[in-house]
Design a protein around this nucleic acid. Sequence first.
DNA 1: TATAAATATAACCCTCTTATTACCAAGGCT
DNA 2: AGCCTTGGTAATAAGAGGGTTATATTTATA
Lengths: 223, 223
Amino acid sequence: MSLKILIVEDDGDLAELIAYNLKKEGYQPLVCLRGAQAIKHLEENQPDLLLLDVMLPDYDGFRIAQYVKSQDILRDIPIIFITARDMEQDKLRGFSLGADDYITKPFSPRELVARVKAVLRRAGKEKRQTHFRLGGLYIDLEKKEVKRGEEVIELTPTEFLILSALLENYGKPVSRDYLIERVLKRDVYDRTVDVHIKKLREKLGEEGKVIQTVRGFGYKLGS
Amino acid sequence: MSLKILIVEDDGDLAELIAYNLKKEGYQPLVCLRGAQAIKHLEENQPDLLLLDVMLPDYDGFRIAQYVKSQDILRDIPIIFITARDMEQDKLRGFSLGADDYITKPFSPRELVARVKAVLRRAGKEKRQTHFRLGGLYIDLEKKEVKRGEEVIELTPTEFLILSALLENYGKPVSRDYLIERVLKRDVYDRTVDVHIKKLREKLGEEGKVIQTVRGFGYKLGS
DNA sequence: TATAAATATAACCCTCTTATTACCAAGGCT
DNA sequence: AGCCTTGGTAATAAGAGGGTTATATTTATA
């Protein structure tokens, strides 16, 4: 049984595009153009994830989120908000309503899919990835190994931890605080993270460039 | 009943070579040159493992993988991707559609067989191996014996336990905790493990070097 | 463009992990 | 008993790894 994803988005073309890409990944997308429909769909289909545009003609996305979080049966459905701009306000409000992630328009389908996967993984519905490919690199989390072709790239434990965290959040910025508290789990200055990132970029060579800095926040992998 | 392995590879010669080597190992290989055939074969034969070239004339390998992962009956079939070393950089993204391993062309038949075995073992379909070759050493877990040619290398019970654990996890790091709790099953200090490892390395001579330390974690066998 | 803020980089030092050695205790065997 | 073997511990040595700081560079914004 594939995972159901409810897309609530009034722009029909965008909704189709999203649906198409999710389907390609083996998910089962359901599309709603209006908030009112969404509520109905939610109860009938109990989707595994909710992709919610913040701006809707009838209800706004936050109201739907509020509703979801107020119902016992729906409460655990993870939510990803789709926001028009990078509105701090929206972002904050979204997270306070229990959003699991947000994505700002315009976004690439690839990025969206990556986030969906990441959120589902955190919700325990998607099995954890252990092998990744990043450009010409192979990364095997089980073997704790990074290879370029046959050549092994030696990473220190800390470097590997950080790389793993970035991979698991592919496309989504990871804050320094998160890296320090949740990944390294020790109390260090945030400059320290920069230093590890520098070393990682260095060791990964060409692919090091996909580690992007997100100013005022942290780092992310990918576009 | 031998395990069925579906090979999807458009290069007929390579496919034959792979099939030949897998057959020699007691598997039952099935070859498809096209993605479309593969889908049919999959449903009819329910193979135990899928060897999938990423580049195919019709579908690309990823699409097949997506399909497999979207079908309930097929979802659990492990997949090993065959990729060309210098794949276009456009895949600058972390991904894997549930791939269990990768192998890059060109590869040796021996390497391929080793990966197939490893993946099948993880999937619990391969019976446990009892004898291994490690460089110039022969290791027989049943007889609890290690030989270099005709000369027997005497290991103590503890040393043998540790070596066995490493062999069964070839290439994958084994943590000290695992060795202490699951292998030795007694409550000892972790420095103690180091000492046994040292003795092992000493006794195994040249091959002792393949016991690698994985800093901050434990030890592993292999490249 | 000037300025402030954030990040990148390089150098240094200390700490933590592992390697290695020596020694001790327990048990088996002659 | 005395001798070996085995496994565990403790102490010390060696070195990789990680943290901090100072300085340079980049980026955002007035």
